Amino acid sequence: LETFPLDVLVNTAAEDLPRGVDPSRKENYLSDEDFKAVFGMTRSAFANLPLWKQQNLKKEKGLF
């Protein structure tokens, strides 16, 4: 999966995202380093959170 810089994904409308980016899964296009910096946890820890908590975190970080 291709990764993009944080500033390309945060608070970006679906139509302005790079081609192929799923707007409902912007976090998947962050590098592992950016993911950890944004969410303060690994991808696996994030995946283990309840869906509502994942969505709330994504909203807080501008990735929803």
Score class of each variant (00 low, 15 high):
1 L>K: 13
1 L>C: 11
1 L>F: 15
2 E>F: 14
2 E>H: 13
3 T>M: 07
3 T>P: 05
5 P>W: 03
5 P>R: 04
6 L>S: 03
6 L>E: 01
6 L>H: 04
6 L>C: 05
7 D>Q: 12
7 D>I: 09
7 D>M: 09
7 D>C: 10
7 D>V: 09
8 V>H: 07
8 V>K: 09
8 V>D: 05
8 V>Q: 10
8 V>S: 08
9 L>H: 02
9 L>P: 02
10 V>M: 13
11 N>F: 07
11 N>L: 07
11 N>H: 11
11 N>S: 07
12 T>P: 05
12 T>N: 06
12 T>F: 08
13 A>R: 14
13 A>F: 07
13 A>G: 08
13 A>N: 12
13 A>E: 09
14 A>Q: 11
14 A>M: 09
14 A>E: 15
15 E>P: 09
15 E>S: 09
15 E>V: 09
16 D>T: 04
16 D>I: 01
16 D>N: 08
16 D>R: 04
16 D>S: 07
17 L>D: 03
17 L>Y: 06
17 L>W: 06
18 P>I: 03
18 P>N: 03
18 P>H: 04
18 P>K: 01
19 R>P: 15
19 R>W: 15
19 R>Y: 15
20 G>C: 11
20 G>S: 06
21 V>Y: 05
21 V>K: 03
22 D>S: 02
22 D>F: 03
22 D>E: 05
22 D>K: 11
22 D>W: 01
22 D>Q: 03
23 P>E: 06
23 P>F: 04
23 P>T: 05
23 P>Q: 07
23 P>A: 10
24 S>D: 14
24 S>F: 14
24 S>Y: 14
25 R>P: 03
25 R>S: 09
25 R>F: 11
25 R>Q: 10
25 R>I: 06
25 R>G: 05
25 R>H: 14
26 K>I: 15
26 K>D: 03
26 K>W: 04
26 K>N: 03
26 K>P: 05
27 E>C: 03
27 E>F: 02
28 N>S: 08
28 N>D: 15
28 N>A: 13
29 Y>V: 02
29 Y>N: 05
29 Y>A: 06
29 Y>C: 03
30 L>N: 01
30 L>M: 06
31 S>F: 03
31 S>D: 07
31 S>T: 14
31 S>P: 03
31 S>A: 08
31 S>I: 05
31 S>K: 07
32 D>G: 06
32 D>E: 12
33 E>V: 12
34 D>H: 05
34 D>G: 03
35 F>G: 00
35 F>M: 04
36 K>M: 15
36 K>E: 14
36 K>H: 15
36 K>Y: 14
36 K>D: 14
36 K>Q: 15
37 A>L: 14
37 A>G: 09
37 A>E: 14
38 V>K: 01
38 V>P: 00
38 V>A: 09
38 V>G: 01
39 F>R: 00
39 F>K: 00
39 F>I: 05
39 F>W: 01
39 F>L: 08
40 G>L: 12
40 G>C: 13
40 G>A: 14
41 M>F: 05
41 M>H: 04
41 M>L: 08
41 M>A: 01
41 M>K: 01
41 M>C: 06
41 M>Q: 05
41 M>G: 00
41 M>T: 06
42 T>V: 11
43 R>T: 04
43 R>Y: 08
43 R>E: 02
43 R>V: 05
43 R>G: 03
43 R>H: 08
44 S>L: 12
44 S>H: 11
44 S>E: 14
44 S>M: 12
44 S>I: 14
44 S>N: 13
44 S>F: 12
44 S>T: 14
45 A>F: 10
46 F>V: 00
46 F>M: 02
47 A>P: 00
47 A>E: 10
47 A>G: 13
47 A>N: 11
47 A>R: 13
47 A>C: 08
47 A>M: 12
47 A>K: 13
48 N>F: 10
48 N>V: 14
48 N>P: 01
48 N>G: 14
49 L>A: 04
49 L>K: 04
49 L>R: 01
49 L>T: 04
49 L>Y: 06
50 P>C: 06
50 P>M: 02
50 P>H: 05
50 P>K: 04
50 P>R: 03
50 P>T: 08
51 L>D: 11
51 L>Q: 11
52 W>F: 11
52 W>T: 10
52 W>R: 08
52 W>N: 11
52 W>K: 10
53 K>V: 14
53 K>C: 10
53 K>S: 13
53 K>Q: 14
53 K>M: 13
53 K>E: 15
54 Q>D: 00
54 Q>E: 00
54 Q>K: 08
54 Q>G: 00
55 Q>P: 00
55 Q>D: 14
55 Q>C: 11
55 Q>W: 08
56 N>C: 13
56 N>L: 10
56 N>Y: 11
56 N>H: 12
56 N>K: 13
57 L>P: 00
57 L>Q: 03
58 K>Q: 02
58 K>V: 03
58 K>D: 00
58 K>T: 02
59 K>Q: 11
59 K>H: 09
59 K>F: 10
60 E>A: 12
60 E>V: 09
60 E>G: 07
60 E>C: 08
60 E>H: 09
60 E>W: 07
60 E>T: 08
61 K>F: 10
62 G>L: 06
62 G>D: 07
62 G>R: 05
62 G>Q: 05
62 G>K: 06
62 G>T: 01
62 G>N: 07
62 G>E: 04
63 L>I: 05
63 L>C: 04
63 L>T: 01
64 F>I: 10
64 F>M: 13
64 F>H: 15
64 F>V: 09
